[in-house]
């Protein structure tokens, strides 16, 4: 991998994926509202997608597999957002709040 160009080396993409994963988990821990946690989850999904695409681009004999997997991740993320937001709206209707501290009826 003695390529002079910055964008043709897998290291940049792998470090980007690790950074996105760390940022997403940090947000998932720190956010206090359900929508904020959902946004952080999207960042984690993006990290997984970048990792799949980077490894597929540089180390896989089949260039299509990673793209198909990332398309499936996009579909799953869209489904997750649809269901998650409808749950958030239902929670807001019942509790008048979407802070994760207030939704603790089943807390033992």
């Amino acid at each position: 991998m003695n390529n002079p160009t910055f964008y043709d080396r897998p290291a940049a993409y792998l470090i980007l994926a690790a950074a996105l994963l760390a940022i997403g988990i940090l947000g998932f821990v720190r956010r206090r509202t359900l929508i904020g946690m959902l946004i952080s989850g999207e960042v984690i999904f993006a990290a997984a997608s970048v990792n799949f695409m980077a490894l597929n681009r540089f180390y896989s004999p089949d260039p299509v597999a990673g793209q198909v997997v990332v398309l499936f991740i996009m579909g799953l993320a869209a489904a997750e957002v649809a269901v998650g937001l409808s749950i958030i709206i239902a929670v807001y209707r019942n509790y008048r709040s979407i802070r994760s501290k207030d939704v603790s009826e089943m807390n033992g």
């Binding site: 792998l14 994926a17 690790a18 760390a22 940022i23 988990i25 540089f58 180390y59 089949d62 260039p63």
Partner: peptide
């Protein structure tokens, strides 16, 4: 989280990935 990102990055960079020698499937 910084430790996690550092660990994942070093794992990914230190992994023994093999570049495929055969021609690409498509």
């Amino acid at each position: 989280c910084v430790a996690l990102g550092w660990g994942v990055a070093s794992l990914a960079l230190g992994g023994s990935w093999t570049v495929p020698a055969q021609p690409l499937a498509n």
